[in-house]
């Protein structure tokens, strides 16, 4: 029954694989992938970087947010070919000796429950805070995160965490 309901698979011949060279989290990476793969699929299924989440897969949720050349973008709607030669940063790139202030504040505020939205939120928030480079208001954070859905927390703690992180980041820059 289910087999009948499933759409007939696309019959186009399998194309040559793309050979991509990108910088991922600071490291040069060469990876082959089918031309119809998204950046998200390359990250998750070719590079085993499963931090970026495949949620809606169509632009609604922001769980797949990564940074491409410093800008927060949706990897589910970016073709692998479009990311070729570019610098990609994923949540895995945030793992350093010390927690990033945003991670630290998210942790202190208990701003994650299931955590599915967290990687995307970290990527969107980091790109935003480094762009503005100052302490931000709750309203500004809400605007900046308008494309990142969270089904658990109700956002209050996430916004608190990012406002807090922006203050810490602004103070450290001044020091």
């Amino acid at each position: 029954m289910l087999a009948q309901l499933m759409p007939a698979r696309d019959k186009a011949p399998m194309p040559d694989a793309l050979l991509l060279s990108m910088k991922v989290n600071g490291e040069d990476v060469e990876v082959a992938a089918p031309a119809h793969f998204t950046l998200l699929e390359v990250l998750r299924y070719k590079l085993d970087l499963i931090g970026s989440k495949q949620g809606c897969d169509k632009g609604d949720c922001g769980a797949c947010t990564v940074q491409v050349d410093g800008k927060a973008k949706l990897s589910c709607l970016t073709l692998a070919a479009q990311a070729n030669g570019r610098e990609v940063r994923t949540v895995e790139g945030m793992t350093a000796a010390h927690l990033h202030p945003i991670q630290d504040c998210m942790d202190k505020e208990v701003a994650a429950q299931c955590g599915f939205c967290t990687p995307g939120i970290l990527m969107a928030a980091e790109a935003y805070l480094s762009k503005v480079g100052r302490a931000v208001s709750r309203e500004e954070v809400a605007e900046a995160l308008a494309g990142n859905l969270c089904r658990c927390t109700g956002y209050v703690k996430i916004v608190d965490a990012i406002v807090g992180a922006s203050e810490i980041m602004a103070n450290t820059e001044q020091d």
Binding site: D10, D16, H36, K58, Q82
Partner: peptide, 30 residues
């Protein structure tokens, strides 16, 4: 998970190349 259908990609670097790629049948701009 929503998979894309199978296609080829082209990433021209100037307008002339772009227009010539677009003049081929089955091409779609992204």
């Amino acid at each position: 998970m929503l998979r894309l259908p199978i296609f080829q990609t082209k990433t021209p670097t100037n307008l002339e190349e772009l227009l010539s790629a677009m003049s081929e049948s089955g091409a779609r701009l992204i």
